[in-house]
Every structure is written in structure tokens, then in C-alpha cells.
Design a binder for these strands. Structure first.
Length: 662
RNA sequence: GCGCCCGUAGCUCAGUUGGAUAGAGCAGCGGACUUCUAAUCCGCAGGUCGUUGGUUCGAAUCCAACCGGGCGUGCCA
């Protein structure tokens, strides 16, 4: 049962009756102004629609509230509604209704969560790493958020297709092919292809950046001199004018100074890349031998795309190894995909996409490239480069066509970094012009993972942080915490070494996932290992602990919860903490709907946190095993069980496991 | 220059079509283990919601300007 939608329906009916077809206000919109009460003193739910309606009707809102209440049919669910303040309508659920609902949820394998109707066909595009590069911290968000969205949508009954749009056709393969041709260590490659390919990628990338830096540096230094000169000139002029510097003058100077600082930082970064090579005479010699590596890499890529036999064969040889390495990570974090159609899958469709755009007059040549010019955008979307190569915009268009035609997608979600916002805005507009205007396309944007310094999370040497190392680290920390806690137990340790390992594995991975999911996806967030493994606050560990604690009750009391569930023993809600817990459990359904409404998993984590806190209150005040009589004991055991089931289900929808002991 | 996003407690963050007294965790202070897991719980303290105006019964939320920060901005993805 979705409580909130049910109440809104009832209000809509009442509002339609009240305002009829007067056209003054939209009853459906006013009905959405029913929400959970902010303060328990106001009841369980409140409706705020009387104020705006009163305004529109030109009548006192309290009178309007009264008329809404007169027409409102909630007698089966709620106590008599109360009108408060300027015209709030406060609702309090009837105890007998709550009892009936919580008992129904207890008997329901879906915990009272109805299936969506109608179900939508939704394609979720997420994770999408470049297969030739090792996965790093930047891939966490897309993978974890996308996975949670898929799981939740599926649970709600939608037809979800998850697709990992792998980067398996880009320049990175040109790099590996070039590296393989010039630098491969055959023994290392035989021993571990992926490690050797990773080394080659890193090496070639570094050489490309080295030469690129050497090339750009003189111009950048010149630019710096000009900027410094401009800044000095401005300062001199302002000094000569004799006038005290006003706000605008100060701003102009600071703007120039900022430019100087930015250029200095760029130069320092380039110099760092150059120095890294030059410090090592052997490395410097290699760099000198491969001075044209930048263009050579692009040529290798072009040859691959053109069907060159050698490069094609190398690509076919490398790809399975790279994918296997990725699969291992996905397996480890328990993320699966229905499809993994990478960029290469669409390569023979790209020419037709461009031709289609041209023939429909949607694209035209500009500066040698084929461009789609769109209203509201200063720059065009380029779908074919001067040199004839296609871009990811082209692939994305082909992908939309495929997903709509082959999978009948009603909706396609792209769980991708917020920095690509403009790309997707253009892509969606271009797709609409192309004729895909019945498919809802949405960019599920997310912010950046930051380090302790508030800047994008990097290692001390400035490299991106590898995903495997990060996971290993989290599990190792979890292992220490599990051991310390188990050792400190009153009656001595309960877990053997194997179980400690297993628990640490679950908790460590959960901590990383949950930390990501519990933040509003559109915000940047600070990656803090200590904090995400903390046992207090809104962390996975805290939820898992609550779950384990419930299980502790069952095992200590030798309770066979399965048979108790089947026994049909009724749940009673006599204590206020029991009532609060039951209401929270019944809100699970609404939390899932809200979480999926704008694809924000943090709505679900927030709900679970509320649930566990409410459970703490119950646990504190309501003895379970030592309840006053058998009926109360059974009722409370079932409430504990329901709490555990919701936690397990909710965490499961976030891709997070539970453990029975910890 | 233009565009998008952000600014909430000492720190990290919630707060989403405008609702009643702005919430958590950490850090600080003070309590609670012979009683179902103290990885916990309870209490205290901590705020001009960047600033200034505006819209209205009501603004952290909407609008404008400004201040501060991030990102993007024609041939990478």
C-alpha cells in the first residue's frame, strides 16, 4: 500500500467535488500538497492545499480547509482531520487501520510494496568504463548509482534493461596497439596480459603527454608573459589615474591576477610531466625516439577503424583480456548487466547516422566537419570530424536508435558525470529532431568524488586512485574493525577467522557503496574511508548492525521466525514506539517511489536511516524476549522481523548485502 | 565572454514542484552496560541557510543583482 498516493487520491476526489470544473485550480496539483507531517504533534500526514486554494478563491483558507474536510472521505484510514494554523489539514492514521496494514505487510513477501502500473521499459546506461584503462575511483559513482536505480526500478515492476556502454573503440586502443608494437614485454604479457597492457597504456599515455607538454610549453610561457604584462599595465594605469581603486577596478585586476595564477598552474603541470620523463635518462631516450607518438597513436586508431588486419587482430586479442579484468571487479562488487554493447558494436552504423542527418537537412558541413546546429547552443554538435572520423556523439545517436528500435525503450537513463551535461542536452535535442521524440531521455548527472583537500580525489603523486586498491583498503579496514569488535564481546569472540573475513568483505564493500549512495547524487562529496566505515550515523555499517542485532534477538531467544510468520500471530500496536515503528515500516513503499521519482538513491538511504533510528527507540523501550506476555512477545518479534526484512530488502536494492552476525 | 552547478552548525552532509520551531553524524560537554549486541542509546551546546533586495498569508527553497567556489565551452570521451 502506498499511503501517500492513496491520501492524495482521496484529496483529489474531494477537491474535484469542491472546485468542480471552475478551472480555478488543478485538483491533481493541489492534491500533491499532501505530505508527511514535519512534527508528530501535527499527526502523521498534512495537507497544505487549502492556503493556495483559499488565495485563488479569494476566501479565508481555514474556511476552504473546512470545506475540503467536509468532502474528504478518509474515515476508514484516519481520525477526524484537524484544521490548524492558517489552514493546514492534519491527519492521523487510525490505530485499527495501521494494525491491519502492518499485518498485511507481514504476510506479504513484497512487504506491502505494490507493482507499478503501467510498467515502463527503461534502459539504464551506466558504468561505461574504457576497457583498456584500469577502473578508478571515478567509476564508482556511475556504477553504484546506476546499479541501485536498476534494482529499485526492477523491484517496482518496471522492465529494466541495463547496458554497459563500454569504451572499447577509442584512442586508448590506438595507444595500446602502438605500445604493443614497440614496447611489449613478451614474458610479462604471457604471464598477465592485463597487467602488461595496463603498463603499455600508461607508458604510451605518458609519452604522448610528454611530447604534448613540450609542444605547448613555449606558447603557454609566452601567454604568461603577456598576462603578467597586462596585469602590470593595468596596475600602472590605475595608479597613475590617482583615483582610489573602486570595486570595478579591483575586480578587473583580480581577474587578471587569477588568469596569471591559472596559467602558472598549467605551466607547472606541464613541467611536472616533462620532468617525470627527463629525470630518467633511459626514459628520456625512449621519448626522444618516439617524438611523433601523438600522431602515430591516432594513426593506429584510424587503421583499426579502417579495418587494418594487424590492428584488428590485436584488438580482438586484447579485448577479452581487458573485459575479463573488468568482469572480476563487477563480480566482486556484485554488479551485473543485461548487455555490454560497447562503442565498437555501433561502428558500422555510424556512417548511416551521419548520412541520415545530412539527408534530413539536420546536419551540414562547417569548417570541414559535419555538424548539427541546434537552437539554444552556441557550438554545434559535431558528428564527423574533418578527417572523416566519427565521434562519441555519433555513437550515442546510433545507440539511441538501437535501443528504441530493438528494445522499445520508453525511457533511457544515462548515469554519467555532470560535466557531460551539455553533451547530453545537445544529444537529446538532436535525437528529438531526428524523430525520437516519444522516448524520454534523461541524464542522471552526478558530482565529483573529492579528496580530503576538497579537490578531485587523487593519490599523493597526482594519479587517479585505482578502484581495486580502494576496495582492498576498505575491506582491510573493515577486517580490523570486525576483529576488534568481536574480541571485545562480553561473552568472548563469536566469529571464526573465515567468518570474520566474510563479514569484513561484506562490510567493506558496503561502506564504499553506501557512502556514495547516501549523498545527493548531484553534489560533490568528500571520500573519507574513516567516515564511511564509521558505526554511527548514516552508514551501511549502522544499518547492517541493526539487522544483525535483530538476528541476535532471534538466536538468543531460539525463535523460529519463519514459523512464527506462518502462525498468523497478530501484530499489535499498543505502545507508541510500536506504532511509530509500524508506520515507518509502512512508509517503505512511498520511499521507493520517491527515490525513483528523480532517480535519487539517497532518498532510500535516508529512509533506511530513519527506520533504523525508529527501531532503536523501539528496541530501547519495548522488551521483546522479556515482553509481558506471549501475545506481545510474538507481536514484537514480528515487528523486529519486519524491520529486518525492510532493511535487507532496502539495502539489497542498493546492491548491499547484510550479515547475520557481526 | 557565454552557459550549467554549488554556497546550510567548527567539520562532513540532508533538507526537490514554497509550509508550522531549518535537521543528522562527527568533533565538544554531560549521562546510560549484573537487564534482548555499548559497533549502541539519551541529553546539552552549536545557525543573520554567502550578501542585499523582491515576489506572498508563508522563502534555505522562487526571481534579480552582487560576492565566493567548481565545471563546461568546435573536431577527447
Amino acid at each position: 500500500m502506498n499511503i501517500l498516493p492513496e491520501l492524495r487520491d482521496r484529496f483529489r476526489a474531494a477537491l474535484v467535488e469542491l472546485i468542480g470544473n471552475a478551472g480555478v485550480a488543478d485538483a491533481a496539483e493541489l492534491a500533491t500538497m499532501v505530505r508527511t507531517a514535519q512534527d508528530p504533534r501535527f499527526g502523521d500526514y498534512q495537507a497544505n492545499c487549502a492556503m493556495p486554494l483559499g488565495k485563488q478563491l479569494g476566501r479565508p483558507p481555514r474556511d476552504v480547509a473546512g470545506e475540503i474536510v467536509d468532502r474528504l472521505d478518509v474515515e476508514d484510514m484516519c481520525e477526524a482531520p484537524e484544521i490548524a494554523g492558517p489552514g493546514f489539514i492534519n491527519l492521523r492514521l487510525k490505530p485499527e487501520w495501521l494494525v491491519a496494514q502492518i499485518n498485511a505487510a507481514c504476510r506479504d513477501a513484497r512487504l506491502g510494496v505494490p507493482l507499478a502500473s503501467p510498467a515502463r521499459r527503461i534502459v539504464v546506461d551506466f558504468s561505461s568504463p574504457n576497457v583498456a584503462k584500469p577502473m578508478h575511483v571515478g567509476h564508482i559513482r556511475s556504477t553504484v548509482i546506476g546499479d541501485a536505480i536498476c534494482r529499485t526500478l526492477k523491484y517496482l515492476g518496471h522492465e529494466v534493461t541495463s547496458d554497459n556502454h563500454l569504451g572499447d573503440w577509442g584512442t586508448q586502443f590506438g595507444m595500446i596497439i602502438y605500445g604493443f608494437k614497440h614496447f611489449v614485454n613478451r614474458d610479462a604479457y604471457a604471464a598477465s596480459p592485463v597487467a602488461e597492457l595496463g603498463r603499455l597504456y600508461k607508458l604510451v599515455n605518458q609519452l604522448v603527454e610528454y611530447h604534448g607538454s613540450v609542444e605547448r610549453l613555449p606558447a603557454l610561457r609566452q601567454q604568461l608573459e603577456q598576462q603578467i604584462a597586462a596585469a602590470q599595465e593595468l596596475a600602472r594605469q590605475q595608479a597613475e589615474s590617482g583615483k582610489p581603486a573602486d570595486k570595478a577596478a579591483k575586480k578587473a585586476r583580480r581577474r587578471l591576477d587569477d588568469k596569471v595564477t591559472a596559467t602558472q598552474a598549467d605551466i607547472a603541470s606541464l613541467e611536472g610531466k616533462i620532468a617525470a620523463v627527463n629525470q630518467d635518462t633511459e626514459f628520456a631516450a625512449i621519448a626522444a625516439q618516439h617524438s611523433a607518438i601523438g600522431t602515430a597513436v591516432l594513426e593506429e586508431t584510424a587503421r583499426l577503424h579502417a579495418g587494418d588486419a594487424t590492428n584488428r587482430q590485436l584488438w580482438e586479442e586484447f579485448l577479452p583480456a581487458c573485459r575479463l579484468a573488468m568482469e572480476q571487479i563487477y563480480q566482486r562488487i556484485q554488479v551485473t548487466f543485461d548487455h555490454e554493447l560497447g562503442e565498437s558494436f555501433y561502428q558500422d552504423r555510424l556512417a548511416k547516422v551521419v548520412a541520415d542527418f545530412e539527408s534530413h537537412g539536420l546536419a551540414r558541413e562547417s569548417e570541414g566537419a559535419t555538424c548539427v546546429f541546434l537552437a539554444d547552443f552556441d557550438t554545434p554538435m559535431i558528428i564527423r570530424k574533418q578527417d572523416g572520423a566519427f565521434l562519441y556523439a555519433t555513437t550515442d545517436l546510433a545507440t539511441i536508435q538501437y535501443r528504441v528500435q530493438e528494445w522499445q525503450a520508453d525511457e533511457i537513463l544515462y548515469v554519467v558525470d555532470h560535466r557531460q551535461g551539455e553533451h547530453f542536452a545537445k544529444l537529446f535535442e538532436a535525437a528529438r529532431l531526428w524523430g525520437f521524440n516519444r522516448t524520454h531521455l534523461q541524464h542522471i548527472a552526478f558530482g565529483t568524488v573529492l579528496g580530503k583537500d576538497g579537490k578531485p580525489f587523487k593519490t599523493r603523486s597526482g594519479e587517479t586512485v585505482g578502484l581495486v586498491g580502494l576496495l582492498d583498503d576498505a575491506v582491510a579496514r573493515a577486517r580490523d574493525i570486525v576483529a576488534a569488535n568481536d574480541d571485545a564481546k562480553k561473552n568472548g569472540p563469536e566469529l571464526d577467522e573465515a567468518e570474520r573475513d566474510r563479514v569484513a568483505d561484506v562490510i567493506g564493500h558496503a561502506a564504499i557503496k553506501y557512502a556514495d549512495l547516501s549523498h545527493n547524487r548531484s553534489s560533490d562529496y568528500e571520500f573519507d574511508q574513516e567516515k564511511m566505515l564509521a558505526m554511527q550515523g548514516n552508514t551501511a555499517t549502522y544499518m547492517q548492525y541493526s539487522f544483525a542485532r535483530v538476528n541476535g534477538i532471534f538466536s538468543r531467544g531460539n525463535v523460529d521466525i519463519e514459523s512464527l510468520r506462518r502462525s498468523g500471530a497478530p501484530i499489535r500496536l499498543d505502545d507508541s514506539h510500536e506504532r511509530a515503528l509500524a508506520l515507518e515500516i509502512l512508509k517503505f513503499s512511498d520511499a521507493l517511489l520517491e527515490s525513483v521519482d528523480d532517480y535519487r538513491p539517497n532518498v532510500l538511504t535516508g529512509y533506511l536511516y530513519e527506520l533504523t533510528k525508529t527501531f532503536s527507540g523501539f528496541f530501547e523501550h519495548c522488551p521483546v524476549l522479556k515482553a509481558e506476555d506471549e501475545a506481545v512477545r510474538a507481536s514484537r518479534l514480528l515487528l523486529c522481523d519486519l524491520t529486518a526484512r525492510v532493511i535487507r530488502c532496502g539495502l539489497g536494492l542498493l546492491g548491499i548485502d547484510v550479515v547475520h552476525r557481526m
